[in-house]
Simulated scan of single mutants.
Amino acid sequence: MASTPLDQSSDLAHDRSRPGWLAWWLLAVAAMVVLIVAVGGITRLTESGLSITEWNVASGVLPPLSDAQWQAEFAKYRATPEYRYEAGPAGMTLADFKAIFFWEWFHRLLGRVIGLAFALPLAFAWIRGWIPKGYAPRLLALLALGGLQGVFGWLMVRSGLGGTMTDVSHFWLSIHLCTALVTLAGLVWTALDLQALDRDRAARPARFRPIAMLAGAVLFLQILLGAWVAGLNAGHASNTWPLMQERIVPEADLSQGLFFAVTHDPFLLHFLHRWFAWAAFAALLWLGWRALSREDNAGKALIGLAMGQVLLGIVTVVTGVSLWIAVAHQVTGALLVAATATAAHAVGRRSQGHGE
């Protein structure tokens, strides 16, 4: 039986949910995710990720506070294959170790802060009855993704500590990064749904349209290739553009098969990431153009960020993976994910809270 206007007014009078408050909270957490992606990029580019060889949830919050503690942490790092590879015959000073230790410690600290910034307000909103009907499972899923992110981060670090590995597995690095960016997209999308609900309590969640699925899938694949490029230091395979090794298609090692080459050969991966970018660019421009008719700012932001990301990618190559240019490239990638989610939400938004 359909609800009458009187029934709907009564429901609204007893509705304690705070979708507007929840939306701003999720956007704040999303901004923190962009920040940790930036710090993660610095950590990777400075080869700092294996400087902390243990995962201590509570005691790891504080860095070493005495010289003895610093020497103990340094000794653990000196026992890793990466130290022997990175330090070389000249070795490494304690001051050098402190510099790389900071970035890994700060990266982990931010992860803890983000976890608390999500979990504690979620618990408070749950107790107060602020979560609108139907949104609790989605928020719990985002919480679970955040927990998995921590697990994947440790598995990534552990992959570089055993045997003869002198770096983390590029597969675990890609899982770690992609999980963060999927979480970012989920935070933005959910926040936009909640903002729509705050404006109109009859609003329904936006649909995930086929064009958004296509653009999202192409962008995901490009990010995956980028993570593998970062994990294998394949950005250094060439510092010229558009040619590599003075040719369009570089020489690749196919001795172990095409699949192994696609997933392990630095030259081939660099080539694929470099040129598949244009497929991602075209898909995002299409999505941005479609979004312009529904949400002008969302479309413009996506198109502008897509153009900026292509230019940053080229500059990253020709500067030989300059630290801050490469970090800007990674941060713009995270912002591009958020903009893609925003544009996809605009395209999938239903009119006046009913039907299409």
Results as ranks from 00 to 15, higher is better:
residue 143 L to Q: 08
residue 250 P to G: 04
residue 108 R to Y: 00
residue 50 L to Y: 05
residue 49 G to M: 11
residue 247 R to T: 14
residue 285 L to K: 00
residue 152 F to R: 05
residue 297 N to R: 15
residue 159 S to F: 06
residue 51 S to M: 08
residue 5 P to V: 06
residue 78 R to L: 02
residue 51 S to I: 01
residue 154 W to V: 02
residue 338 A to S: 08
residue 150 G to R: 07
residue 262 V to W: 07
residue 226 G to F: 03
residue 163 G to W: 02
residue 92 M to K: 00
residue 240 T to Q: 12
residue 79 A to W: 10
residue 202 A to K: 15
residue 129 G to M: 10
residue 221 L to W: 12
residue 199 R to V: 09
residue 35 L to S: 02
residue 302 L to S: 05
residue 332 T to H: 03
residue 274 R to T: 01
residue 268 L to M: 15
residue 183 T to V: 01
residue 72 A to I: 01
residue 333 G to F: 09
residue 291 A to P: 06
residue 237 A to M: 11
residue 227 A to S: 14
residue 250 P to M: 03
residue 162 G to T: 12
residue 274 R to A: 06
residue 53 T to E: 07
residue 200 D to G: 06
residue 166 T to Y: 03
residue 40 G to R: 01
residue 40 G to E: 02
residue 126 W to F: 15
residue 199 R to T: 13
residue 160 G to A: 06
residue 58 A to Q: 04
residue 285 L to P: 01
residue 238 S to T: 15
residue 244 M to D: 05
residue 182 V to T: 15
residue 325 I to Q: 02
residue 336 L to K: 02
residue 352 Q to D: 13
residue 47 E to T: 00
residue 172 W to R: 12
residue 153 G to M: 03
residue 209 R to L: 07
residue 347 V to R: 09
residue 112 R to P: 11
residue 228 W to T: 04
residue 77 Y to W: 12
residue 65 L to D: 03
residue 352 Q to H: 15
residue 355 G to Y: 00
